[in-house]
Computed example of a mutant assay.
Amino acid sequence: MKVAVCGATGVVGSHVHRVARARGHEVVSLTRSSGHDLTKGLSEDALAGVDTIIDVSGIQTLSRKRATDYFLAVSRTLQEAGAAAGVSHLVALSIVGIDGVRSSYYGAKEEQERAVRAGVLPWTLLRAAQFHEFAAQTVERGSVGPLVVVPRARVRPVAAAEVADALVDLAEAGPAGEATDLVGPRNEILVDMVRALLARRGSRRPVVEVPLPGAMGKAMSSGRLRGTPDASRQGHQTFAEWLDQS
């Protein structure tokens, strides 16, 4: 099978690229670094011979408008170029528990989901919990001098590599609509994850937990982004195990 991966250099996309190639699939990377700006369209031959698109593209912003504009532009490009090239399957990645959270990035992801469902391409949508790598991203984004500011969040993190395995499984299985949510094996508190990560790095930087305002902050602190464990597919690697391997 020939697979096009959108966001192939990202946290999940790099694993998707690796897993798909390891399983013997031909992989096309659709990234800016490979000359493709998905917000502006694709050349006629970019998806030539592609059977399935796996979309794990993303943007680093808390602006709902900016994120929505990005995801809708990417979705439009993939639908139009995919239909023209005869692509038979679109697999897209989203986030567990975001229903009705019409704020910030989560609101934009809901718009992306609607675009996937309404598009002409047969589709599969996988919602996954936050990744173990979210702790390192939080340190990077929340650093204020020596201080690390962490949003109050109850999560059930999953390994990005396991998300990639699930996405390639779904690509191989064919269009299925709504896939079973994928969450991690245990509940965690984000601030504890950050402190454990810094300790593993030998850092004594002070860490402060703060509640984020608005619907997004409420969703993070409420625990709804952990999904429903008894009705969800669960990964195997815990955050502590991921730290050991990292």
Rank of each mutant, 00 (worst) to 15 (best):
G35P: 08
A179M: 08
L72H: 02
M193L: 13
V5K: 01
R64H: 08
D99M: 13
D55W: 06
L78A: 06
A240Q: 14
A108V: 10
C6H: 03
G100E: 14
A22Q: 15
A115D: 05
G82C: 05
K2I: 10
A166Y: 07
H25V: 04
I189R: 14
A136N: 13
V144K: 12
P122W: 00
K109S: 09
H25I: 04
I53D: 07
L212Q: 00
V139L: 12
R66K: 13
G202R: 07
T77G: 07
G49H: 03
P211N: 09
G107Q: 03
A92M: 14
F71V: 08
S222E: 08
D37E: 15
L190W: 01
L93Q: 10
P229S: 11
W242K: 10
E111G: 11
A160E: 09
E26L: 14
V149G: 01
H236M: 15
A8N: 11
H15K: 10
V150K: 01
V168T: 15
A128R: 02
T68W: 06
R154S: 12
R32I: 08
Y70M: 13
A8E: 10
V87Y: 06
R32H: 12
L93I: 12
G202A: 04
L30Y: 01
G82H: 04
K65M: 03
S43V: 14
R102H: 14
V208N: 05
D230P: 11
V3N: 00
F71K: 02
P175Q: 05
R76M: 07
L126W: 02
V120P: 10
T77M: 07
G223Y: 07
L170M: 11
T31W: 05
T61I: 11
R64N: 04
V191C: 06
I53W: 07
Y70H: 15
L62G: 02
A161W: 00
R66G: 07
E44R: 14
S104L: 06
A129D: 02
A231T: 12
V19E: 09
H89T: 01
D165E: 15
P206T: 05
V96P: 03
S232E: 02
E80F: 07
R205S: 03
P213M: 00
R195L: 03
H89I: 03
H15S: 05
Q237V: 15
D169K: 02
S103Y: 01
A166D: 13
E44K: 12
G49E: 06
H15C: 11
A176L: 14
A67M: 05
L170K: 02
A166S: 14
F134W: 15
D45T: 12
V74T: 10
V16E: 00
V28H: 01
A161D: 10
R127M: 04
G227Y: 01
S63P: 03
P175T: 06
H15G: 10
